[in-house]
């Protein structure tokens, strides 16, 4: 039995110890937001936070996270209680197929935790491990920089105008 914290709750895994964390979270704990993309830490679709750092869970044996704290996209925010990045993602229409976006957002959240005011180059460096085949890169960059700007002290907190339908 392997014990760790998953989205703030202490959990026990009975999976074989070499099972990658991704499959434990998806299939034993039924949290499907983190995705399988490559199985060799090349694409970032499986990105979770392990003790606050963005890690590729598809190559992380569950035995290696004993006692650690794991956060998945489900723990970052929910449709009713969005993380600012999730809000920016939805408002700016970042996702196309959407499959890689949980991983993208987890990488972005880890970046902003560490560096709340990253430069464009720092955003690119932090996000280079996450592949998006739909090519949402320009919007990912804009969304992260927008959230970073808004979180700065003295920043005017203007809600990004969400181009919703006109309510007549």
């Amino acid at each position: 039995m392997i014990e760790f914290t998953l989205n703030g709750k202490l959990v026990q895994s009975h999976d074989e110890p070499d099972t990658p964390l991704l499959w434990v979270v998806r299939d034993s704990f039924k949290l499907k937001g983190s995705k399988f993309g490559c199985g060799m830490a090349q694409c970032g679709a499986c990105t979770m936070h392990i003790d606050g750092r963005a890690q590729r869970s598809c190559v992380m044996p569950v035995a290696a996270v004993v006692g650690k704290s794991i956060t998945t996209i489900e723990g970052l925010g929910t449709p009713d209680n969005l993380h600012p990045l999730q809000q920016a993602w939805a408002e700016q229409g970042v996702p196309q197929c959407g499959y890689c976006q949980s991983g993208q957002i987890m990488s972005a959240a880890a970046l902003l935790n560490e560096n709340p005011n990253p430069s464009e180059a720092q955003v690119e460096a932090a996000m280079a491990g996450n592949i998006c085949r739909c090519g949402c890169y320009p919007r990912i960059k804009t969304a992260i920089l927008t959230v970073a700007e808004q979180s700065q002290p003295g920043a005017v907190q203007v809600a990004i105008p969400m181009p919703v339908s006109e309510e007549v």
């Binding site: 499907k32 937001g33 996209i73 969005l82 939805a90 959407g98 976006q101 949980s102 969400m162």
Partner: peptide
């Protein structure tokens, strides 16, 4: 009109369901 995609929220919160899920 530039209306935000109706699947963007689900796809930003890990709640959109794909075959693999």
């Amino acid at each position: 009109q530039d209306i935000a995609r109706n699947d963007a929220l689900a796809k930003s919160t890990g709640t959109a369901v794909y075959g693999v899920d």
